[in-house]
Design a protein around this nucleic acid. Structure first.
Lengths: 159, 159
DNA sequence: GTATCCATACTCGGATAGTGGTTGTCCGAGTTGCTGGGG
DNA sequence: CCCCAGCAACTCGGACAACCACTATCCGAGTATGGATAC
C-alpha cells in the first residue's frame, strides 16, 4: 500500500499558497520545490477539480486558495489528489465458495469489512483534525515567522 | 492508494484457521474461498515469514496458527501481507529548491510528515485493537455458532 | 505379530510472466496584459 | 491626452507514453504417510 507521492507536493503547495497573496503559477511552485512542473500541474488540476483552489488563466494567472487556510483540512488535500476511495475493497469472500453465506446474511458488512472501515475512518478523522492553518502555525512556532515571509517574498519577486 | 487484495484473503484464512484444529493446506483454503490457490499460497508464505502461522510439509501438512486467536491482531495480518512500511513517504521537499531549509532545521520531521504519521498511527492503533478472536466472536454473535462449526466440519471432511 | 525399509503422494517455497495504475511528459485552447496607432 | 484594436506571451487543461508494483502462475525441494517385507 503506497500513497501517491503527489500528495506531499500538493500539501507543500497549499502551504505556499497560504503565504502568497497573488495567484501563483504551477511552474513557479515547481521551481520553488524543485519538482517536475508537468506532474505538479496534474496535482494542482486535481485540487482545482475538488474546489480547493481557483485557477486563473492569462498573463498574471495561476492558482490561489478558495477558502481560508483554517477551513481546508489535510484530508481535503489528500482526497483531492489521491481519490476518496477507501484503501480496502471488500470483495465479499464470504459469499463465495462451497460455504457461501446466504445473501440475506450478507446484508450487513462482514466483521473484517467493519474493522477495516473503522480503521480507515480513524485515519480520515486524524487527517481531518489538522488544517493547513495548523501547519503554518506549527512552522511559525518552530522556525519563526521568517519562513512564511521568505516564501511570500520569493513568490512576489520576479524570476 | 490501494491496499493489496491479498489482505482480505489472509484475514479470511486466519478466521478459518481459528475454526480448524488440524493443519490446513493452501489448496484447501483456496477451494473453500474460491480464490486462486497459487496466489493465496503467496499470502500464506508471507504470514509464515511473519511468524503468524506455522507451516508443515508432507502428507498431512498445511498451515496452523502459532498463537491463540486472541493474541493475533488484524494489524499483524495486514503488516505481514502488505508490508510494515507506512503509506506516506516523506521525501523532504523542504530541503530542496531555492528556499531549502537548513539541514539542522530538518533534524525534526516537518509538520506535514508529523500529520501523516499521526494519521498512520491512528489507523494502526485501530487495527491493533481488533484481534482475530474478536472477529470470530462477532460472527458467532450475529450468525450463531453454526458458522464456525460448519467451517470446522468442512475442513475436517475429505475432498 | 512386529519392526524396518522404501516407494509414493502430498505439501511448502521461491523463481518466473502478465497486467493495471501511478509517474512523467507533451502540446493545444483560452485568457490576460501590453503596445502601437488613431482620434 | 485618451481610447481602441491587435498582438504576443503566458496560463491552464486534457491527451499521450514509460515504469513499477500487484496479480497470477508454475515447477522443484522436502517430508510424513502407508504398505510391503524380513525377522
Amino acid at each position: 500500500m503506497k500513497m501517491s507521492g503527489g500528495v506531499e507536493w500538493a500539501l507543500h503547495c497549499a502551504f505556499a499558497l497560504t503565504a502568497a497573496d497573488h495567484p501563483v503559477s504551477a511552474a513557479r511552485l515547481a521551481e520553488m520545490h524543485d519538482v517536475s512542473a508537468s506532474y505538479l500541474a496534474k496535482q494542482l488540476q486535481a485540487m482545482s477539480r475538488a474546489g480547493l483552489v481557483r485557477s486563473a488563466q492569462g498573463h498574471a494567472g495561476g492558482y490561489e486558495l478558495t477558502r481560508p487556510p483554517s477551513e481546508i483540512t489535510v484530508l481535503d488535500v489528500v482526497e483531492a489528489v489521491d481519490g476518496p476511495t477507501p484503501a480496502f475493497l471488500c470483495t465479499d469472500v464470504r459469499a463465495r465458495g462451497p460455504l457461501a453465506a446466504s445473501p440475506e446474511a450478507c446484508r450487513t458488512p462482514c466483521a473484517i469489512h467493519r474493522a477495516m472501515t473503522a480503521a480507515d475512518e480513524a485515519w480520515r478523522a486524524s487527517l481531518r483534525s489538522v488544517t493547513i492553518a495548523d501547519l503554518t502555525a506549527q512552522v511559525t512556532g518552530e522556525h519563526g515567522p521568517g519562513v512564511l515571509a521568505g516564501v511570500r517574498n520569493w513568490l512576489a519577486s520576479a524570476t
